[in-house]
Design a protein around this nucleic acid. Sequence first.
DNA 1: CCCGAATGAGACATAGATGTCTCATCCAAT
DNA 2: ATTGGATGAGACATCTATGTCTCATTCGGG
Lengths: 192, 192
Amino acid sequence: MSHSGYGRLMTTDREQVLESAAALLTRKATATMDEVARAAGISRATLHRLFAGRDTLVRAIEDMSLRRFEEALDAARLDEDEASDALRRLVAEAEPVAGVLAFLITENQLFEAEGMNEGWDRIDDRVSALFRRGQESGEFRIDLTPAWLTDALYGLISSGAWSVQDGRLAAKDFQYMIVELLLGGARRSVKR
Amino acid sequence: MSHSGYGRLMTTDREQVLESAAALLTRKATATMDEVARAAGISRATLHRLFAGRDTLVRAIEDMSLRRFEEALDAARLDEDEASDALRRLVAEAEPVAGVLAFLITENQLFEAEGMNEGWDRIDDRVSALFRRGQESGEFRIDLTPAWLTDALYGLISSGAWSVQDGRLAAKDFQYMIVELLLGGARRSVKR
DNA sequence: CCCGAATGAGACATAGATGTCTCATCCAAT
DNA sequence: ATTGGATGAGACATCTATGTCTCATTCGGG
């Protein structure tokens, strides 16, 4: 059986490969399968044993990204407490997923993968529902549409992921920088 | 001479091709030269007459993006008035460039093109200088670093560009949505 | 120490994109 | 109507990434 060491569901290898692949492909979408393998620290042969081909690999990244972000949505309990607190939890939960999520957001070649948009739509609904709830409770301003706030959140998460990857931002500041900007903005408010 | 019609510097053709190419490659970075040509409404032969190859094309997109965004920086007069007003002008000037800029931001395969980072660094400096000026004048809060605000601005511009392309956001709302979120945030402020 | 599974290295054929070419057609200016 | 330049369509050779294979080596468990 060969347990190959530590952990979980033996999917550890796969997921680690998927993460490094996402990180690489986000920056260089035309990277070759050999570059992907090398970036993951494995050989091209092993990469092919894990994922049949490039399509399969990309699809696997998408699947993992969607699944893990949806898990983040669950863990954040978006319905509880004030909307701003829920948002804070969401960003915190999203931090470990930010890298792969950035790939998912930018690589919108999904429009071909049909079954994909379904899962993505469901996520969109949940996030924008959070913003709508915040508007209805009077916490959030109503001149910024939930759809835009959703897109903006994705953009900020991507920016945060890149900043962390490039070392311009510490991972521990990820949540604070995103949430503070998204909620409070850059302007120094007169009173809180 | 064949003026091919309407104006400017006869670079109109090239720039239009570059814009549609950027729009396509942003969404599908693995798009084929034939797809790029078709998206631009020209034949693959003509595309090859305009740009020697794929590298040349990508490089041309990068060059144009940097140049036009730098022109936007110039036009925005970042040193004048309050920093928030300058930011407002910058986003407005950036709107027509948002599409190509999104390509430039995401496709960071620049790390190979050496002469490139130079121009990019210069832009980074100018933008973060604006945020720093706003902090020093007391307009902006100081707990969000200029570097992060710069990255966040890029992310929001990308999100805005995608939202406009997908029809979720009207181009005329581009400036407002970005600036209002970036400056004021989503939280309904108590006063002002 | 031995065995079996997994991996890495490399060869190989294939497919698809690329770059170059030719030729017919179209369009604009004369 | 004529002419010159530009374009589109397509053929073609080439090249590169891909996918499959084999074999030697390594590694971990028994």
